[in-house]
Each structure stands twice: as structure tokens, then as C-alpha cells.
């Protein structure tokens, strides 16, 4: 069911990662990604796996819950791995017709597959330990310096907040409408692609209608409360950098430096 999707979900907790400032976490994820694509040998990759495992431990998220969240990407990872194995040029190890496996192919496939899994893991950790509101606050704050060159930081953040806020609502709405139509005998599960596409109409029309209606109502509600963009807005909970964040940031920079160092091995 739709409710099983865990990507982008927040899990209430009280771990070290939960308590970090969202800006630290966003920068941390960026640094981690750079490090992930910096390493180019097995030692480096091994180290990155260890680092990721450490993050999972630190977040105190139940392991099976975390792994369940990775399930949806299995297909993408498999596809990437298969493509990499067969499409990379190099010394041929095995050949059958036009299919050939090269040493570089195996290496690339292993690296890309691991990178993809780690990438999704780290971003899940970010969203699992950070509330959507904190996340967008962090992004807004990080984009502030770019406001001078015309980046609408507040508006972007507000759009993201609203979009994130309505994902669960829309999922719930979708399930409700699906049930109502299923009760009238609609069949969403069988038939070929064309039939399935057609079967979506009874779902999509009401869903769009209600989404537009909601958007309208939200706009009116915001205006009724005198919303007028980012200027002069203050916050109930301003973001605050603490000693924890400095320590975390330093550790992350150290990680990046070490990742760079593994290239020299």
C-alpha cells in the first residue's frame, strides 16, 4: 500500500542526529556526497560504508525500519548494476554473443551500486531525523546569502514546506478515493497498460479537483492571516548553532579530508 513508503518520512526520536541543527545536517549530507564520489578505490569505499553504518547507529532508527525504506530502490540499483557490468569497456573476462563482462565493468558496477545505496541511505537518515519544517527552515537559511543575486529563498522554502506538508494528505486522499471507486467495482490492479491507464481516470479527476480546492483554500487562509512573503517575518523557534553542531561539522570535514587521502593510497 501507499502507506508503506518511508522515503521522506520523519521518525520521532531523541538521538544526537535528531538534535543537530538542520543546516549542519544538510551541509553534512552534501559533504558526505562529495566524499562518496571522491573515493575511487576499495579502501575508500569500505570506509564510506563504515561511516554510513555509524550514522545509522547514531540516528537510533530501528534497523529493519531503515532497511524497509531502501526496498523501493532495489530495482533501480539492479538496473544500474546490470548496465554497468555489460556496458563498460575494458579487458574482457567473459563473453556470450554481444554480452561481455569486463574487469572495469565489474568494478564500476560494484562502485555505482554501492554509491546509490549509500546515497539513498544518507538522505533517508536526513529526512528520518529532521522534521520537514526544520528541513525547509535549514534550506531557507542556507539560501539566504544567494538572495542578493535574485534567488527567492523564502518563497522556495515556503513552496517546499507546503509541498511536503501535503504529501501525506494527498496520499490519504488517494487511498480514500481508490477505496470509494473500488467499492463501485473499479479495478486498479489488472489489465494491460492501456486499461490500467484508463482505470486511473476515476481516481485522478477527483484527486486533482480536491487538490485544486485545497490549494485555493490554503491561499485564502494564508491571506486571511496576512501572509505576505518573507520580509520582516520572525520565527517561533529560530535556528541555533550549538557546540554539538561545530563538533559535527568538524568531524564531517575531517571525513572529507580522509576520503581525499584514500585516493593517494
Amino acid at each position: 500500500m501507499l502507506k508503506d513508503i518511508t522515503i521522506g518520512q520523519y521518525l520521532v526520536g531523541n538521538s544526537f542526529l535528531h538534535k543537530l541543527d538542520p543546516r549542519t545536517k544538510i551541509i553534512g549530507v552534501l559533504l558526505y556526497m562529495i566524499a562518496l564520489f571522491t573515493v575511487n578505490n576499495f579502501i575508500g569505499m569500505g570506509a564510506m560504508i563504515v561511516v554510513s553504518a555509524f550514522f545509522v547507529l547514531l540516528s537510533q532508527i530501528p534497523l529493519n525500519y531503515f532497511l524497509k525504506g531502501l526496498k523501493p530502490i532495489v530495482l533501480i540499483v539492479m538496473l544500474t548494476v546490470v548496465l554497468q557490468i555489460f556496458m563498460t569497456p575494458g579487458e574482457v573476462l567473459w563473453q556470450w554473443g554481444f554480452l561481455k563482462i569486463t574487469d572495469m565493468g565489474l568494478r564500476q558496477a560494484g562502485f555505482m551500486g554501492t554509491r546509490l545505496v549509500l546515497l539513498v541511505s544518507i538522505t533517508s537518515i536526513l529526512t528520518l531525523t529532521t522534521t520537514p519544517i526544520a528541513l525547509t527552515d535549514g534550506i531557507e537559511s542556507l539560501l539566504k546569502p544567494f538572495q542578493k543575486i535574485g534567488v527567492p529563498a523564502h518563497e522556495l522554502a515556503m513552496m517546499m514546506t507546503i509541498a511536503l506538508r501535503f504529501i501525506p494528505t494527498l496520499i490519504e486522499e488517494t487511498e480514500k478515493i481508490m477505496q470509494a471507486q473500488a467499492a463501485r467495482g473499479a479495478d486498479f490492479e489488472s489489465g494491460n497498460l492501456m486499461e490500467r491507464g484508463k482505470a486511473m481516470i476515476p481516481l485522478l479527476v477527483p484527486l486533482f479537483l480536491s487538490a485544486f480546492k485545497r490549494a485555493d483554500e490554503l491561499a485564502i487562509a494564508m491571506e486571511a492571516r496576512c501572509y505576505h512573503g518573507g520580509e520582516n517575518r520572525t520565527r517561533l523557534k529560530p535556528l541555533q548553532y550549538t557546540a554539538k553542531d561545530r563538533v559535527a561539522l568538524l568531524a564531517l570535514l575531517l571525513m572529507l579530508a580522509l576520503a581525499w587521502a584514500t585516493r593517494m593510497v
Binding site: 471507486q181 467499492a183 463501485r184 477527483p206
Partner: peptide, 19 residues
Amino acid sequence: REIRMKVGIVFQYPEYQLF
């Protein structure tokens, strides 16, 4: 499916299912 047809169900705000 056939059993389901015997039991009709009208959800809250059923007007949202019109399309």
C-alpha cells in the same frame, strides 16, 4: 469482487468520488 457487489459502501463526503 462479486461478494463486494452485495455490500455497497458510501464513504464520508461521497461527492468527492464523482468524476
